[in-house]
Write a protein that binds this DNA or RNA. Structure first.
Length: 462
RNA sequence: GCCGGGGUCGCCCAGCCUGGUAGGGCGCCGGCCUGCUAAGCCGGUGGGGGAAACCCCGCGCGGGUUCAAAUCCCGCCCCCGGCGCCA
């Protein structure tokens, strides 16, 4: 395999790597074990190679032997060696498996400017945008999530309590049904109706169009992938309870387009001059949301199935960092087009994810909750995923392989964007304002709403 | 699902029948030569270990036979063609 940042650091500067464990709040016994296993692996590897070398030497002599007598002699030596190699290889295979397993558990390095901390509340806001509607009862909370950190957002104090998105959806607009969906599927599923269907499409179109105009290639990926491919994308042990698996087949429903897009280069090297490869994917996403408990059970904020536009970049190691900023800006521009007030936070070392070197979350203001909620997340994985999935490019100078860098980021998750719109763009008469940037995607559709989504006239069904 | 053909280095292909150092072409990189954007010639171009010499591994994946497997045998995956079935 080409040089992997993590393995290189483990071998050349274990103490620097230990600092990563400390920052992430990880148990260092994993590091000790990795160091021990790696040196055991290397010494056993050399031992076996020496034996195999002997074996090859005598095997060659068998072929070149002049007499039958000589031949018989060499064959018996080779036989002897073969059985020793067999024995040693069994032991080595165990070591190798353990070695590979532990490599897959190792955390990525961290960027120098990742804040050290172990809870979401320590995430560091870096900037904000928009004009937030803040209920007078939530002013203190708003301050604590913005100006306290030196991040300024315009705001307007509202006296009337905002309607939570779930109530907007089901009772004010009458365009969602989570009760019946719960009955026929389970909680966290939903029916969306009428104008919200158009809104869902329009949101996808807006995000795809903005990214396509920035040079991102559009893609609809497979919605199911093999387990070993998924393992290359993430720390499978941690995530396996979150993933829907197809019965009797080695297929998993994707939780995000990130994974099948990443797999475009799975065992499929590209040429150096093809980098960077920038993609904007659209897919349905399926998530068990195990461990979410009772959080966000109402409405469609946290659901098992939704549509999402995803940004993905395969980058050259020499210039990958700029894309983290570029992709974050892209997300911000989409939210600005939707006129949604948001803040960007740098995620702390303890919450960043095993494979991630640096991550920004983008959070939209929810007036009824008095807090910013995550709508997007942009991560730089360096060569962590590339190592697992063997994602390489062929160096032009010498034809050798090198790992690509991968970055992924939310473009726009549509159902969550709908909740943000229902919260931020609700009017006193129950209608919902449609941001101007979305309108051109609705204009060509005669039955679609154009400037406002109005509550549905009551009828018996649903 | 059945029958047949196929999967070999970034791409195209040979080698398989008859087991014994994986070869050619294209592309790319470097060098040489010739002064002219060309052609020609030489070398390099899968992975690992090693300071290096060099050694080990690698022919879709996994097993087996053998002193020795790209090559023979078994299972699986994928691609192409034909047949069947079909929202």
């Amino acid at each position: 395999m080409p040089t992997w940042t993590v393995l290189e650091l483990l071998r050349k500067d274990p103490e620097a790597y230990r600092a990563v464990f400390k920052k992430r709040g990880m148990n260092e016994s994993l590091l000790e074990e990795a160091l021990k296993l790696d040196s055991l692996y290397l010494s056993k590897l050399k031992e076996i190679e020496a034996l195999r070398s002997e074996h090859n030497k005598y095997s060659k002599l068998v072929r070149e032997a002049k007499s039958q007598e000589e031949k018989t002699k060499y064959i018996s030596i080779v036989r002897e060696l073969a059985s020793r190699i067999d024995e040693e290889e069994k032991k080595f295979q165990e070591i190798k498996n353990a070695w590979e397993n532990i490599l897959k558990k190792l955390p990525n390095i961290l960027a120098d400017d990742v804040p050290v901390g172990f809870s979401d509340e320590e995430n560091v806001p870096v900037r904000g945008w928009g004009k937030a509607k803040v209920p007078s009862s939530k002013l203190k909370e708003f301050y604590e999530q913005t100006e306290k950190w030196g991040v300024r957002l315009d705001y307007e104090v509202i006296e009337k309590e905002p309607v939570p998105h779930a109530d907007m959806l089901e009772y004010v607009l009458g365009m969602g049904d989570t009760q019946q969906a719960g009955k026929i599927a389970s909680s966290r599923f939903y029916y969306l109706f009428d104008d919200l269907v158009w809104l869902d499409f329009a949101l996808s179109l807006l995000a795809l169009d903005m990214l396509a105009r920035k040079g991102y290639r559009l893609v609809i990926p497979p919605y199911m992938i093999r387990t070993k491919v998924l393992e290359s994308a993430l720390d499978y042990d941690t995530f396996k309870d979150m993933i829907y698996k197809i019965e009797d087949e080695d297929l998993n429903l994707i939780g995000t387009a990130e994974h099948p897009i990443l797999a475009l280069l799975y065992d499929n090297p590209v040429r150096e001059e093809d980098l960077p490869i920038k993609l904007a994917g659209w897919s349905a996403c399926f998530r068990k949301e195990a461990g979410a408990g009772n959080r966000d059970l109402k409405g469609i904020f946290r659901v098992h199935q939704f549509h999402k536009v995803e940004q993905f970049v395969f980058a050259h190691p020499s210039d990958s960092w700029g894309f983290l900023e570029e992709m974050t800006r892209n997300t911000e521009e989409i939210l600005q087009a939707l006129e949604l007030p948001y803040r960007v936070v740098k995620v702390v070392s303890g919450e960043i994810g095993l494979g991630v070197a640096k991550k920004y979350d983008v959070e939209v203001w929810y007036p009824s909750q008095g807090r910013f909620r995550e709508i997007a997340s942009i991560s730089h994985l360096i060569d962590w995923q590339a190592f697992r999935g063997n994602l390489t490019f062929i160096r032009k100078s010498d034809g050798r392989r090198e790992y690509v860098h991968t970055l992924n980021g939310t473009g726009l998750p549509t159902t969550r964007a709908i909740t943000a719109i229902l919260e931020n763009h609700q009017q006193s008469d129950g209608a919902v304002y449609i941001p101007k940037a979305l309108r051109k995607y609705l204009e060509s559709i005669p039955s679609a709403p154009k400037d406002y989504i109005h509550p549905r006239k009551k009828s018996a069904f649903p």
